[in-house]
Structures are given as structure tokens and as C-alpha cells.
Design a protein around this nucleic acid. Sequence first.
RNA 1: GCCCUCAUCGUCUAGAGGCCUAGGACACGGGCUUUUCACGCCUGUAACUGGGGUUCGAAUCCCCAUGAGGGCACCA
Length: 534
Amino acid sequence: MVKTRFAPSPTGFLHVGGARTALFNWLFARKHGGQFVLRIEDTDQVRSTAESAAGILADLQWLGLDWDCGPQPGTTKNEYFQSMRLELYNGYLEQLVKDGRAYEAYETPQQLATMRLAAEKMKRPFRYRRNMPGRAEPGSGPTVLRFEMPFETITFHDLILGDISVGGDEHDDIIIRKSDGFPTYHFAVVVDDHDMGITHVLRAQEHLMNTPKHLGLYKALGWQPPAHAHMPLVFNMDNTKMSKRDKTKAARAAAAAWVKQGNNSDTLSEKTGIPPNQLKEFLDKKADDSRIAAAIGAALNVALPEIDVQDFRRSGYLSDALLNFIALIGWSPGENREILTRDEMLQLFSLETIGKTSGRFDRKKLLWMNGEYIRQRSINDLQRDLAAFNAVTDYPLKQATETQQRELLAMYQERTGTLADMAENSRFFFEEPTLDAAAYKKHIESGNGWTALRQIRDMLTAVTDWSREPLAPVIEKIIELGEKRGAAPQTLRVAVCGGPVSPPLLETLCLLGRETTLARIDRILGLQRPTSGT
RNA sequence: GCCCUCAUCGUCUAGAGGCCUAGGACACGGGCUUUUCACGCCUGUAACUGGGGUUCGAAUCCCCAUGAGGGCACCA
């Protein structure tokens, strides 16, 4: 039976690249009627956090990628956390030592760094090997366990890339147990993949060069290795790696631009609520805290690039759209297909149709695709998406009743790329709009604006039954008002919405209600200076 | 520096020797529709990295060059 796994390390949020790896593993397992395992690789005691693990689970759930074995959301660590499996690792570690395949080493990190530097100076790659001269004496430093790699060419068949082979003198004796007693990634993956019966290891191409090391371990432990498949990477449009650092970079740039405008960085500290010393550390690139980045983005009203799954959720992307888009980077379903349901993906997915070339993350295409999903979706489904969106954001749209939500979704689904866009553009339904000065000047202050607005006010005041049927003919009349067709409705729109853009007036006025509509018109009429009357 | 991998429109890709005067989608340009913004519809621009082979024939196979990316941690 096919068994795949997704094995994130809980040191941050779930990255879109990680989400894609999870998706492909999920697809492959489901496609073949197999199992999908979620394993938390928390062997880095310093960087792993419980919150991160919880966040990753939540993001996977939002994406709809369910796992057959793994941590139970909302409970404590179980055996799918590597930190709970130390006994297992230690057993095999002992076995390797007994078999003479693992040995202790005592260099300090500083010594190792010096050795690397020396090798670099001689323009030779540094390889730590058991038989090399100058190894540290027992007791002279912390003890780690290294695995003695054989001096032989290792060739393996990658299900995506084909045959890969790496020469014997390229290997080195990797550390398999750190001085804190925890296994390293290399050792823990091998033990766990074997122990959990993983049949296919599908991971990002950055792991390609790890595979020979892992294969060496499988052989030494006498195990049959799983099949491997390395998928192409995903980059930014500028060909840089998509990373959390894109967010910190954007935040620093925003802060720098803000200071350049003559603002004081102390006020930034106040605005963000970040202590000055922490803020300074961040701005001086001494710390890469993404929370500080987010705070700066929020305070300065600058959108940071979405990198993590939760960023996309907050920006109002639908999980299905994000998943669909991510699937298409490095994989082609053929037949010129693009928009695919999960079932269709399952039908068409195969390792053979995964490409070899790395792809770029084209946000414009994602935006289009998200709009496409919003348009095709039923209002009921959209309401569920909106609930998930509202749960992690705080727009005035949150105040909408169920009925209002449905009306809003119906009028925005043709004209919005993301739920955040809709939330932003529909603000005027929930709070007094700030008047767009240019629009005011153009559509109200000039031409017949004032006259038209007064006429409109009178026409609307006459409507007592404020609903679609009675209102529709009135809107028609407003369209014909004045000599320039279409001018009057714009005047009304600006008066009521604050700006030149809104959904069609009929729907807009219906949802806004009679009282609010008339009050906003009157408020605008009150701005007219007596002398400028027509 | 060493090792590994990859190479089709700006971007994601189709293409498994003749079906390719290279197809689709996003983006971009033009037009239609229109109470704004969108949506929708029609339409246009745009690519086989270069050089050598192999072959009757190459985007497709081989070699070299170039370019891009990944790896070279007590991180995963």
C-alpha cells in the first residue's frame, strides 16, 4: 500500500512551498488509495515551538488536506512528534555504533568552522571523514555521533528526475546525533520513514543531495529504502527563493521609506507597540521576527507579500483556489486544464506529469484564479469561505448579518479578486465613508451635480417601499437625468458611497436602506456653499 | 570553489522525431457590452538559450558552451 508523509518542522508558519509538498503527497496517497501521514520534525529543540505546530495543523485543515496518521489537533504531543521518539532513535544509534558504522566526534562548532575555512582557502571542499588526520581527542569537546559513509558512488532512481548518482568522495560523515542527545534530521527521517512504512518520499528538490546520505543509512541499517521523488522548487517572480525574509525585507523597506519622509522611528515604535530596542534590532537586520514585520506593515498600512498559508487566508484567498494554483506550479494536468476540483486533481495527478523545472509564483495569476473561484462558487459555499476569512481578520464586514452577507457576496462575486478586496470595498455599507475629494469635485461640484443630487433626493424620498421593484424604475429615471446620460448616477454614487466605484446602484441602495441613503445625500447637500448654488 | 539538477512566449505550461507555419492560461494591447468598477465576449503582440552532431527529418535524441537553481550546518 502506498504511504506518503508530510514532515514539517515546527519552526514557523506553513509556507506555500510546504503546502505544495503536502498537497502532492496528499494527492499521491489518495490517488492510490493509500495513507497520508503527518509527522512533526521537532528535533531542533531551540527553534521548535508548540504554537508553530498547532498553526501548521490549522493551515492544513483550512486547505482541506486531511491526514490518516499524525498529531491530533488540540491535544498534546503524540508519537508523530519526533521529540517523542527518542528511544527508538537511540536503539538504532546504538546498533550503528555496535556495527562500527557510527563513531563519536569531539570537535567544537568553532573548530569545525575553522576547518571549513581552511578547506575553502585551499579551494577544496571540506569533508569530515573518520580516517582524516587531525581529529579532536575524546573529551576535548562536546560529543556527537557521526555516520561513516562508504566511499562509493551512490546511484538512485528519482521518480521525477531519473537516475542520479553521486561519487564516493563527495560524501562526508554526517552527524546523526547532536551533542544534546537529539538525532539530526538525517537520522530521524530515515528511522521514521522506515518505522512508519513510508513507501514514497516526495519532497522538494532542495533535499536531492540529502538522498545519498539517507540511502547510506538505509543500507547500514539493513532496510529497504522508499522510492524518492524530488519536485521542482517555487520562486518569486524575480527568481529569488520565496521566504519569510521577503516579508521582513518589505517591512524594513516600508519603515525606511517612512522615516525618509521625515518621521521619527520612535513614533513607529509607538504605532506598532514594539519596544524601541526590539524595533531597532529588527530594522538593523539583527532579528528577523515576522511578527514585528507584520506590526510594521499594519501600522504603516503597507501590504507585505504573502508567503505563508495564513497570509493568503488573511488576504482573502479561498483555500481551493490557493491549492489549485499551487498545484499548477510544476505539475500539469494536461488537456489544457487549469481550474480543477480536488476530485479532478486526483483523477489527473501522477508523478509522471510533474515537471523538472522550477516555477515562479505569479501572484497575478493567483489573483485571477481566486476571482474565478469566487465567481463560480455558490453563495452558500462563499458564506463558509467568508466565515473562515472573518475568523482571522477584522474588517467592518464582520458586522454583517447572515442575510447581509449573502447580499454582499452576490453583488461582489463578479467584481472582486479576494475576500479582502470585498471587505475593503464594502466598508461604506458599515461605516460613514470618507469622501473621495477628486470624485466629489468631478461628480458633485461640477456640471449639474448639485441640481441632479437634489432631484435624486426628491425622487428617492418619494419611494416609501424601499425594495427592488419600486426602486428599479427610479434608478432607470436617474440614469436618464440631465443631458449627459450616466452623469447623475455617478453623482448619486459618490454622495452615497464616498467614491466613484460601487456595485450597481439598485443593489447598493437596497442594502444600504432608505434612511442611510437619504441621510448621506442630505449630508452631501449640506456641503454646498450658498453662493455656488445653480 | 566543488557536487547535483534544470533550460519552450514576461509568467505557469502543452509538446515523449514528422500532427509545430509550436497549443492553452495569466499578464499586456485593441474592440464590443455597460449607470461606475468589474464580469463576459471577440481580437492582437509574444517563446523552442547558443553551437556542434545523429537522422530523409529535431523544440523533441547525443555532446559542448552558456545561463538559472539547489546542496556543501550539532537547520530541517
